[in-house]
Computed example of a mutant assay.
Amino acid sequence: MKAAAGFTETKTARTALALLIGIGAGGFAYLIGMPLPWMLGPMIGNTIAAILHAPIAPPARLRPVVIPIIGVMLGSGVTPEIVEALGDWAISFLVLPPFLVVAAGASFLFYRRIGKYDPVTAYFSAMPGGLNEMLILGAEQGGDEKRIALAHASRILLVIGFVALFFGLVLGVTSGGQGGQRWTGLWELGLAEYAVLAACAVAGVYLGRALRLPAAAVLGPMLLSGVAHFFHVVDVPPPTVLVIAAQVVMGTVIGCRFIGASAREVGQDLFLGIFSTIGMLITGLGFAAVVAALTDTDLSQAFLAYSPGGLTEMSLLAFAMGGDIAYVSLTHIVRIVLVIFAAPLVFRWFGRR
Rank of each mutant, 00 (worst) to 15 (best):
residue 334 V to H: 04
residue 91 I to A: 08
residue 124 F to G: 05
residue 233 V to A: 14
residue 79 T to R: 14
residue 168 G to L: 07
residue 328 V to C: 02
residue 265 E to D: 14
residue 48 I to Y: 13
residue 126 A to I: 12
residue 311 L to D: 03
residue 14 R to A: 06
residue 196 V to H: 00
residue 348 R to K: 15
residue 225 S to G: 04
residue 343 A to C: 04
residue 273 G to S: 12
residue 327 Y to K: 07
residue 15 T to S: 08
residue 334 V to P: 01
residue 125 S to M: 09
residue 121 T to C: 00
residue 312 T to Q: 11
residue 338 L to R: 00
residue 316 L to R: 02
residue 77 G to A: 15
residue 296 D to S: 15
residue 165 L to C: 10
residue 227 V to I: 15
residue 228 A to G: 04
residue 110 F to A: 10
residue 155 R to A: 09
residue 230 F to G: 05
residue 286 G to A: 04
residue 182 R to S: 11
residue 110 F to G: 08
residue 263 A to G: 10
residue 23 I to D: 05
residue 215 A to E: 11
residue 76 S to K: 05
residue 151 A to N: 03
residue 182 R to G: 11
residue 232 H to R: 15
residue 247 Q to W: 07
residue 352 R to Q: 13
residue 280 M to A: 04
residue 25 A to D: 11
residue 94 L to W: 10
residue 87 G to L: 11
residue 290 V to C: 05
residue 135 L to H: 00
residue 166 F to Q: 07
residue 246 A to C: 07
residue 83 V to F: 14
residue 280 M to Q: 03
residue 146 K to V: 12
residue 306 Y to F: 15
residue 14 R to K: 12
residue 299 L to S: 03
residue 40 L to E: 02
residue 140 E to D: 13
residue 291 V to E: 06
residue 147 R to A: 00
residue 20 L to F: 13
residue 39 M to W: 01
residue 331 T to D: 13
residue 216 A to C: 06
residue 291 V to K: 01
residue 226 G to P: 05
residue 84 E to M: 14
residue 176 G to K: 10
residue 119 P to L: 00
residue 87 G to W: 12
residue 99 F to R: 06
residue 313 E to Q: 08
residue 311 L to T: 04
residue 82 I to L: 10
residue 185 G to F: 03
residue 151 A to P: 11
residue 320 A to M: 01
residue 17 L to S: 01
residue 255 G to R: 05
residue 176 G to F: 07
residue 112 R to F: 01
residue 253 V to Y: 05
residue 17 L to G: 02
residue 270 L to Y: 05
residue 124 F to N: 01
residue 224 L to G: 00
residue 12 T to H: 09
residue 211 L to T: 06
residue 57 A to Y: 12
residue 274 I to K: 05
residue 275 F to W: 08
residue 82 I to Y: 08
residue 307 S to H: 02
residue 306 Y to G: 01
residue 250 M to D: 03
residue 133 E to G: 11
residue 241 V to N: 09
residue 148 I to P: 02
residue 25 A to V: 09
residue 51 I to A: 13
residue 191 L to F: 14
residue 241 V to E: 11
residue 212 R to K: 15
residue 334 V to I: 15
residue 327 Y to H: 08
residue 348 R to I: 10
residue 30 Y to V: 05
residue 51 I to E: 11
residue 288 A to H: 02
residue 116 K to I: 02
residue 23 I to N: 07
residue 204 G to I: 04
